[in-house]
């Protein structure tokens, strides 16, 4: 039995058509609610920084991102963050807590392979590209600003 390309194409089309679809509407609602909520926690930390600790603008920003990252890492360690992610999808991936999650998650399960090549090297398997492309694009923007 040899299968023609036409037959394969037809099969691929059938698979795409019949594949069970996720309920994007419900997913978007939960992404909105959880994402909004996480940002409100960030807003609360920011308010705490400016109103209570009287931090400068830069320090408030640093304080907020550090605290959010602490929260994301801690919840990942407890094994809670992936459960939030099951419901929230992008709502918990896009906020900076999700960035922290993507660093802790590979690091903690590579501890079996040791602290240097396990935890140390695997920490950025998921988050690495974000830093790489973020930094590169910021440098490009900076250089463009040098010349205009």
């Amino acid at each position: 039995m040899a299968y023609s390309d036409k037959e394969k194409k037809r099969y691929q089309k059938q698979v795409t058509e019949r594949m069970p679809k996720s309920n994007a509407f419900v997913q978007c609602i939960s992404a909105f609610l959880v994402g909004g909520l996480i940002c409100c926690i960030g807003q609360a930390i920011m308010t705490l920084g400016t109103e209570f600790f009287k931090f400068s603008k830069e320090n408030t920003a640093a304080f907020t991102s550090m605290s959010m990252i602490f929260l994301g890492s801690f919840l990942t360690g407890l094994g809670v963050y992936d459960k939030i992610g099951k419901v929230a999808g992008a709502g918990s991936i896009i906020p900076i807590t999700g960035f922290a999650n993507s660093i802790v998650a590979p690091a903690m399960e590579h501890r079996f392979e040791g602290y240097i090549l396990g935890v140390g090297a695997q920490m950025f398997t998921v988050a690495g590209p974000v830093l790489v492309y973020g930094v590169i694009s910021s440098i490009i923007v900076g250089i463009i600003y040098c010349f205009i």
């Binding site: 939030i84 099951k86 999808g89 903690m108």
Partner: peptide, 16 residues
Amino acid sequence: RQYRMPLELGGQDTPT
């Protein structure tokens, strides 16, 4: 761990 993503990484399953 070998084929997909770290266990504790938050995200949704696709329907398949």
